[in-house]
Design a protein around this nucleic acid. Structure first.
Lengths: 191, 191
DNA sequence: TAAAAAAATTGAACTGGTTCAAGAAATGAT
DNA sequence: ATCATTTCTTGAACCAGTTCAATTTTTTTA
């Protein structure tokens, strides 16, 4: 849980007392490799903060059956279908563990209660959503304006640690590249 | 300003008094066609809420000089580089008026003051950022998983009103399609 | 309302990236 | 340790969408 406190403290200050309150609203869960946190068709019951390991969020294409990676999450990142979580309707997203993982989970009811008890967390969640939205807009820009090789290079620079934690073919899908193409890009010497 | 109040009231309740406070923090501005609200290289001074007309947010590619549309905004939408606005560093984004437009502007200093005065707005901004992030993630998914024709069809369904307000070649860029391709897609009878 | 500018169309040549297929390498489970 | 599964690689054929170029249509401005 220290990881979560540190994350929050980057945006708002926390007293010892605050930390105890926060702790009480969360559950720690271990996920096996491949285990699902969210399955398409069901409501997203938890907002998850990753403590260890890596998760993927993906959508199965109705026509082709292919999985499209829309999000990747490692330690210190959030993973959830926010829309489904907050509005309690069926999600079209799957979230599962790529490697064995440890996550801190909070339900929507607990989330709302926690925000009432500690209103300063409104600001924290507003600020992380803001940087999240900024990151998503940058992803869109790179997807539209740059070729596959350049997108991969930028990805490596921006998230150097992910390369070791996430299989290549998932990174390819996340970047909107075929697994074969990414392999060929990596084979180029002048990367 | 009624448009902004209505927008806020979709998420939190507002008293007459609240509305007066809010009003005092905003400035109304008219933009001519083509006029810039933000230019790449400068800090984003305002968070803008569009009252009338339409705006585009774009990045000029350093190599090719081509403009890539990353956001479109019409009445009832927000337009800003949030990262630059809140962290006060140079933006790489341009925002300008596609048509003559009316916008409500707030500076960062005023924004922070307003939130201190009316903490309930923390929740409002958290919630709109949340739906914004959801919309951005959906854009990424469609961009990666669907061909140009299908992306355009989905765009028309999701934002039927934009077709009349935004030139086709800007919609094309927004969707990651060349202007020529979109024209050919539209020429297909069975759209 | 005429001239100028902006936006949309169409066709032809081209290309970045996909798909398919088959094998090699790495990793996980028992 | 060994077998099974997952991940990565490589090549060949193909194609969705781009680029370039020229023209028409629509919109804006004076």
């Amino acid at each position: 849980m220290e990881l979560l406190f540190d994350n929050i403290r980057r945006y708002v200050s926390l007293t010892e007392e605050d930390q105890n309150i926060i702790s009480s609203y969360w559950t720690i869960k271990q996920l096996n490799r491949g285990e699902h946190l969210l399955s398409a068709g069901s409501v997203c019951r938890y907002d998850a903060f990753v403590l260890e390991g890596s998760l993927k969020g993906y959508i199965i294409d109705a026509a082709t059956g292919k999985e499209e990676i829309v999000l990747l999450a490692v330690a210190d990142w959030w993973a959830a279908d926010l829309d489904s979580f907050h509005n309690q309707h069926a999600s079209s997203l799957n979230i599962s563990a790529i490697t064995p993982a440890t996550v801190a989970l909070i339900t929507r009811a607990a989330f709302n209660e926690l925000l009432e008890k500690l209103p300063k967390l409104e600001k924290y969640f507003r600020l992380i959503l803001q940087s999240h939205a900024t990151a998503l807009l940058r992803r869109i820009y790179y997807r539209n304006a740059h070729d596959a090789r350049s997108r991969y290079k930028t990805f490596l620079q921006q998230y150097p640690s992910l390369q070791a934690q996430i299989p290549q073919y998932l990174i390819a899908s996340y970047l909107g590249i075929s697994a074969e193409m990414l392999s060929k890009i990596r084979a180029q010497k002048d990367l």
